[in-house]
Nucleic acid binder design. Sequence first.
RNA 1: GCGGGGGUGGCGAAAUGGUAGACGCGGGGGACUUAAAAUCCCCUCCGGGCAACCGGGUGCGGGUUCGAGUCCCGCCCUUCGCACCA
Length: 811
Amino acid sequence: MPPAGEGGAPVGYDPAAVEEKWRARWTERATNRVDLAGGERPFYQLMMFPYPSAEGLHVGNLFAFTGSDIHARFRRLQGHTVFQPLGYDAFGIHSENYAIKVGLHPMRLIPRNIANFRRQLDRAGLMVDWSQSVDTTDPSYYKWTQWVFLQLYNHGLAYKKKAAVNWCPSCKTVLANEQVVAGACERCGTLVEQRLLEQWFFRISDYAERLLNNLSTLDWSDTTRTAQRNWIGKSEGAELRFAAGTAGHIEVFTTRPDTVFGATYMVLAPEHPMVDALTTPAQRADVEAYRLRASKQDLVARRVNKEKTGVFTGSHAINPATGQPIPVWIADYVLMDYGTGAIMAVPGHDERDFEFATVFGLPIVRVVAGEGEDAATPLATAFVENEKGRLVNSASFDGQTVADAKRAITAWLGEQGAGKSVVNYRLHDWCISRQRYWGPPIPIIYCDACGAQPVPEKDLPVVLPDIEDYRPDDSGISPLARHAEWYHVACPKCGKQGRRETDVSDTFLDSGWYFLRYPSATRGDVAFDAEITRKWLPVNTYIGGNEHAVLHLLYSRFITMVLHDMKHIGFEEPFTKFRAHGLIIKEGAKMSKTKGNVVNPDQFMDRWGADAFRTYLMFLGPYEEGGDFRDAGISGVRRFLDRLWLATTEATKDGAPDEGVMRKLHQTIRKVGVDIPRLSYNTAIAALMEYMNTLRKGERSPHHAEVEPVVQMVSPFAPHVAEELWEQLGHSKSVFDSGWPSFDESLAREDSVQLAVQVNGKLRGTLTVPVGITQDEALALAQAEANIAKFVTGAIRKVIFVPGRLLNIVV
RNA sequence: GCGGGGGUGGCGAAAUGGUAGACGCGGGGGACUUAAAAUCCCCUCCGGGCAACCGGGUGCGGGUUCGAGUCCCGCCCUUCGCACCA
């Protein structure tokens, strides 16, 4: 515990008192309030908003927020008007499941969680403008989420279709493909089944190409951009038509049209719509049995069981290249939701087809030969190397390279109306329907006479009713359908009785536009104000977890692009710069309640103070890498703040600042100023500690001018104590309005340096030399040094001189 | 299987191709103190040596270079994504 003051001596650092004082002062002075209309040099610093869990804020949240906060405060010190809002992403299955579990209605639970979060967030000293917050579950927010839905609906970008969807039998809800991890529910781990339901989709796949192309223009971490690129999964190839008698034509997507002469059979996904027509009476029983099995099988079983299975339909199709009939099979290794749901199988040049052909004894034909091979060289495995391959067994295309043949064969088949070049994307349309309670109702009304009608904008929001039986059941119909007084509503077009859509929308829609809402959060009349949006968006720097690298960020980009195309906003990319913070783990595992390794930040802030805890989290390691949380070492950071306190309270205005200390100071200003924008917080803190060691060396009492800048530099990390010390230094305004200390190159310059001297690349000594020393002078000094000279045996062949760093004598 | 991180002291970690281990924790010793706390000073990669110094050292094996933790090739381990995507 800090010592009590005696006889007018300075009182030691008491974080609890300091932090309480400044929390109150910031509120009273509205220090964090932003003048959105008038602020100069606007800078929008955004952090991903949290889901307010019942467990409260955990160390991982705090790590993420603190990193953003430091950047925001730094930009403010540099003279920007910084807008850093924060809100709550509180709809969704998380809350609902938890509510069901503890038997507390989400409408009662969420406000309680939010209040607790707010308390913890306030304590952490974040520079957040709480007058501009959002809560996705507040009707004043989701009114506009529904408005966003209507924008897409009105422009043909929202549609309904019956689709095989992932159904979690435990959560009793539909999951997006992205929420299915290895065939199991992302949230509860239960194996997912397939169900056919009417679902609302957004046509994000129409935007695949733009979403892909714009990536190169964004200042985002490479890992994030790569993840998005892979997710979009652009693949160039051809769509080929295989005539299948009375059943029609089977369309396939292939990236290897050059191998069409080697297509010896075809495979359709079991769910493919042409299967019925293709199945012959003799095969029907087998085909039906296989399809039934496939439909019962979830994705896991399909993937875990790698052995190829399948059934012959009894029909044949004509290979458009060879004119030969080839059998048509169904097999679950072909997926209905990629390409056309059907493939031409080229066992000679595709590993999966090879395996299947081997199992069922189907013919394997070589149509590409590698170096030293010819048309007759047997295939022990699929030959997939295509760089040096030449076509064989392919009629007039023999001898062509793979690349040439791709073009030539596609063109040739195109002339016959049997093929065309296509680009295929892995990205699917975004299913936004959820047959659950805890979300914004989708604003659609069904009328027997008029069909589906959008809810008129003036009738928004469609308020989620406060009902007691909100639990989902096994019917696949939303709980909202059970409430007649809500469900029945007049058709907005004809006025007759209609029915409301009972699905609610995906939480990714809530978070897909929230950054647009913050600056206009107090506006009841519009989703976002045009002028304010023009001034503040796009977001300058966005910080969040890489677990949202694909979904949230991609959906946000999509919504932004759509709103741009509708002229609601003037930009099409929402986040100019994005950086993913690392993950804080504990004992080698991600913190989770089930693992019982969640660290509650309250206890650390109690013991060490919020400032020390913030600084410690940032000192743990590189911000973008995260790290293992352990409390060893927090004392070092606290000691640093204690020493800063002592240095400041002892600072004197007598005399002049020390030249050497000022040199170190300016070197520190330079380093910290470079490190913070790079989010290299750990090294910035190390530099500040180094400066503190210089400042306090030998218990010297520092000069005011030596201390003031360090208080400013520490302030992004430890805002409360910095404010207190700034005040003690005689300032009446907030340290955050004091500017960033100015850097003077001439004051940072050293007049002598340590020069490493090597002989044949091995370090043999160091010399202290004047900064501007020439190579010859340095060489002479080195040779005069016995410990160095003794290694210089024989004639000097070469000398490498790196001014200010090293001299290497090669003999 | 494919793709991206990452392997450096007892620990967390630093290092534009240029003195490996800054900064911090932990450990050891000392000053101050009646004593303790706080503060300040010194030591702390490994081996050898009283020391000056010498040798070795960044997962493993090669290579490029005057010089490699850093670049190149081939492996091993680890971690996170994606995964029968035609």
